[in-house]
């Protein structure tokens, strides 16, 4: 898909997330907006090999949404790719829905149960290790939040992955600098984030997380032929990206726009 089309796909995804969340009166809009381009690059940019007709195809690439709060965005992508019906999207978190605020692996296309932070990288490391054991060539991707990097378990997994030379594992940190309540810097800074990953034995690339071509380039280059190290992309992003009043404002972590706010949000997302 051409970059222009991928950017259109990103805009579509933001609008879809907004409408699903508004309809439900629930969902994490701003945390999803921050990783829209990352999801688009992975799923539409020729990076991940998936088969929606055969979701458990053994050679598929694996994607773990460790920051499970972006579930609403992943659902839209999976339905768009044909893993389940698009008609189901508007049932998001409504009574009896399969589409919850965090992902479950019972849904086609979802690999793991996530939502509790700090779990995904260990699971991804297990998937990557299994690929090595079975000599399968699939890759495993894990999308982490930067606030999630507060969790000690992330660093247990990071240490493990480099020790076991998991050069089929790619972590992407959605580095928007905000968590559920505040700016990370103001209460527990994760910086220097790139240096931390380097010190844990990872190959590190820093990219603009809203620039799809940069993301695709970095992901396609991947680890490099000879690298034995797992790869992490530090994707610099803006929480709430795409809607001016949500951008970089912690109060929008779990808030749904109403009235005039909603009008502005819709307008801004259509005009891009």
């Amino acid at each position: 898909m051409a970059i222009l089309n991928l950017n259109n796909k990103a805009n579509w995804l933001r609008r879809q997330v907004l409408e699903m969340a508004v309809n439900a009166g629930a969902g994490h809009i701003a945390p999803s907006f921050s990783c829209v381009e990352i999801l688009v690059a992975l799923h539409y940019g020729g990076i991940m090999r998936l088969n929606s007709k055969n979701p458990s195809w053994p050679l598929r690439d694996r994607f773990i949404l460790s920051k499970g709060q972006a579930a609403v965005a992943l659902y839209a992508v999976l339905a768009d790719l044909g893993f389940f019906s698009k008609d189901e999207l508007m049932s998001f978190t409504c009574d009896g829905s399969r589409l919850g605020g965090h992902t479950e692996n019972t849904l086609a296309g979802v690999e793991a149960f996530t939502g509790s932070l700090g779990h995904g990288l260990s699971i991804a490391a297990g998937l990557a290790l299994a690929a090595k054991m079975d000599k399968k060539r699939y890759k495993t991707f894990a999308l982490l939040g930067d606030g999630e990097c507060h969790e000690g378990s992330i660093w247990e997994a990071a240490m493990f992955a480099s020790r076991h030379k998991l050069n089929n594992l790619i972590a992407i940190v959605d580095h928007n600098g905000l968590s559920a309540t505040d700016v990370l810097k103001s209460y527990l800074d994760v910086e220097p984030l790139a240096d931390k990953w380097k010190a844990f034995g990872w190959q590190v690339k820093t990219v603009d997380g809203h620039n799809i071509s940069q993301l695709i380039l970095a992901l396609k280059e991947g680890h490099g032929q000879k690298s034995q190290k797992p790869l992490v992309l530090i994707a610099k992003t803006i929480k709430g990206k795409g809607v001016s009043f949500m951008e970089n404002n912690p109060i929008w972590h779990y808030r749904i726009p109403v009235g005039e706010e909603l009008d502005i949000a819709r307008r801004e997302l259509c005009h891009e």
């Binding site: 793991a112 260990s122 699971i123 490391a125 998937l127 290790l129 299994a130 997994a157």
Partner: peptide, 26 residues
């Protein structure tokens, strides 16, 4: 040797890792 892993003193990672392996049929 290939079926035995010492993850170190890291129980949380041990469980997540086990989950990833089990998802892959181990």
């Amino acid at each position: 040797k290939s079926q035995y892993i010492n993850v170190g003193i890291a129980e949380q990672n041990m469980v997540g890792l086990a989950a990833g392996l089990a998802l892959s049929g181990k």
